[in-house]
């Protein structure tokens, strides 16, 4: 049984039909990437999974439970954490307070300390800056903070929306390495990316989205060799 199973998902924004029947599965332990052009519905897919928007039709199953109508804050408790598009850290909270908000659903102090240790281990920079206000971090550090904050809840499934957006090439490379590292330590990842080449490189499987529909899917290696993918998303002729 897959960790996440989505069937025939339809999501609307008012009259805008953003998702037109998405089917998607993520197995435990995988990195699955969702690629597609601007406006294809990648962010909407993640937002529907995490409960920020409600689907009009279809079902979302996580760990065998249907979560379509579970409020967003309870979905986090179930083990899904969504890092949204743009570096939306809490600017006037300290780095430490940001991380503590990430652990909001955890009551056990010992578990929180343990998660904090893991996050600082992954991002030593955050430990150095823990008393600084989030808004004073550099762009790259802010992106580390959004990911670190999400990991504080120790999610089973991490939804990442364009984590490399707006970062310098060096940092992009580091972020993708970090994602692979997080996965190697046991977290399943659903990754949305504009940077299709880098995403396909680290992913096990991929889905290609066009105007609210899945048009292609398969092992990432295969999609990387696919003619249509190379033309449309990898910038080749």
């Amino acid at each position: 049984m897959p960790l996440l199973r989505i069937e025939n998902l339809h999501t609307y924004y008012g009259h805008v039909h953003a998702l037109k029947g998405i089917d998607l599965e993520v197995e435990e332990g995988e990195i699955v990437t969702l690629i597609g052009a601007n406006g294809a519905g990648k962010s909407t897919t993640l937002r529907t999974i995490s409960g920020l928007v409600r689907p009009r039709e279809g079902r979302i199953e996580f760990g065998g439970q249907v979560i379509n109508h579970v409020p967003a804050h309870k979905i986090v408790q179930m083990g899904v954490c969504h890092v949204p598009e743009g570096r939306r850290i809490f600017t006037t909270l300290t780095v430490m307070e940001n991380l503590m908000m990430g652990a909001y659903t955890i009551k056990d102090e010992e578990a929180i300390r343990e998660n904090l240790r893991r996050v600082f281990d992954l991002f030593p920079r955050l430990a150095e800056r823990k008393n600084q206000l989030g808004g004073t971090l550099s762009g790259g550090e802010q992106q580390m903070l959004t990911i670190g904050r999400a990991l504080m809840s120790r999610p089973r499934l991490l939804l990442l929306d364009e984590p490399s957006l707006g970062l310098a090439p060096m940092l992009v490379k580091a972020i993708f390495e970090t994602i692979r590292e997080i996965n190697a330590r046991g977290t399943t990842i659903l990754l949305v990316e504009q940077n299709a080449r880098a995403a396909l490189k680290i992913a096990h499987r991929a889905y290609v989205l066009e105007t609210g529909r899945v048009v292609l899917s398969g092992p990432a290696q295969e999609l990387m060799r696919d003619e249509r993918v190379r033309k449309a998303y990898l910038g080749e002729r």
Binding site: G51, L52, P84, F90, M101, Y104
Partner: peptide, 19 residues
């Protein structure tokens, strides 16, 4: 702290598991 987080961003607060 959650109150201050909600003041900054409702949506991200929900994604942190804050009611």
């Amino acid at each position: 702290t959650a109150m201050r987080a909600v003041s900054l961003d409702h949506e991200v607060s929900r994604l942190m598991g804050i009611d």
